[in-house]
Amino acid sequence: MKEELLKKELVHISHKVYSRGLTQATGGNISVRVPERDAILIKRSGISLGEVTKEDALLLSMDGEVLEGYGTPSKEYRFHLGIYRTRPDVQAVVHCHPNYAIGFACLGIELPLPTVTAQKILGHVPVAEAAPSGSEELAYFVTEVFEKYPGIKAALMKDHGICTVGPSLEAAYNIATLVEDTANQAFIKMQIQASLPQLSKKEVMK
C-alpha cells in the first residue's frame, strides 16, 4: 500500500515539475526511496515528466536492477542511487533543468544566495563537475558533491541542470523551486547592479 501511495506522489510531483517549467521535453527524473524494500521508485526513460503515470514508475534495487515495472529506468539512475547510498537521510531526489539555475551551472558558479530565505533554507549550493548524461563519471561527480557537503539540499550540475534532495518528494520539489527562484532573483540583482554603476549603495536603497 505504501508503495502505491509513493507511485501516486511520484506522478503528482513529476507533473508539478513539468507544469512549473523546471524541465523541458523528456528531460529530468525523479525518484523516491522505498525503505521496506531497500529499493527506489524512479521514472522510466523516454517519458516526459508531464505525462508520467503510475505505470512509468519502476522499482529499482540499490544495485540498479529493475525489480518491477516495464521499460528502462532513467539513464541518470546511477547518481540517484549514489546519493541514497551516501545520504541515508535522503528519501527523495529531484533532477531537472530549470533555466536560470542552469545559467549559473553552465558558468560553474555556485548558486548566489541573495535573500535571507535562500541563505537559511539552502545554505550552500555547490557545483558538480560536468560529464556526459547517464555516465558513470557523472554519477561519481554528483555523488561526490553530496558526500563532500553532507548537509546540502541541492547541487548545480555543470552544463546540465540541478539535483535536489529531501525527506519526501514534496520537500525535494520545494527545494527545486527555491533553487530556480533564487537563481532568478540573483540574476535580477546582478542586472540591476550592472545598470546602475553610477549610484552608491545608499542611493540604490532609497
Rank of each mutant, 00 (worst) to 15 (best):
P132G: 09
E68T: 02
A92Y: 03
A155L: 00
Q191K: 15
I102G: 05
Y140C: 07
A130I: 03
Y77W: 14
S31I: 11
M62K: 04
V52I: 15
R20S: 09
E203V: 12
S195R: 11
P150W: 10
K202S: 14
G21M: 00
Y173F: 15
K158W: 02
A101K: 00
G71E: 09
A186R: 01
G103W: 01
D56L: 13
L59F: 10
P35K: 12
E3Q: 15
V34A: 07
K202D: 15
V204K: 14
A105G: 04
A128W: 05
L10S: 04
L6K: 06
A186W: 00
G28M: 13
V204L: 15
N29I: 07
R33Q: 07
K189D: 13
T72L: 15
L81W: 05
N99E: 03
E136A: 13
A171N: 00
D89W: 13
V127H: 04
D63M: 07
P197M: 13
T143M: 14
H80F: 11
Y84E: 08
Q198S: 01
G134F: 09
E36S: 14
A118F: 03
S74I: 08
E51P: 00
Y100M: 12
H124T: 06
D159F: 15
I42G: 02
R44Y: 12
C106P: 02
S14R: 05
K54P: 02
G71M: 10
Y18T: 10
T182L: 07
S14D: 05
K8Y: 04
V179Y: 00
T53L: 06
L22G: 12
D63K: 14
E170S: 11
K189W: 09
Q198K: 03
S168M: 03
L41Y: 01
Q119S: 00
N99Q: 01
F79I: 05
L59G: 05
L41Q: 01
H97A: 13
L5F: 09
T182W: 02
I188K: 11
L49R: 00
H15S: 02
L122P: 00
R44A: 09
K153M: 02
R78M: 09
M205N: 11
G166K: 03
A186K: 01
T72A: 15
V66P: 09
I30K: 01
V127Y: 08
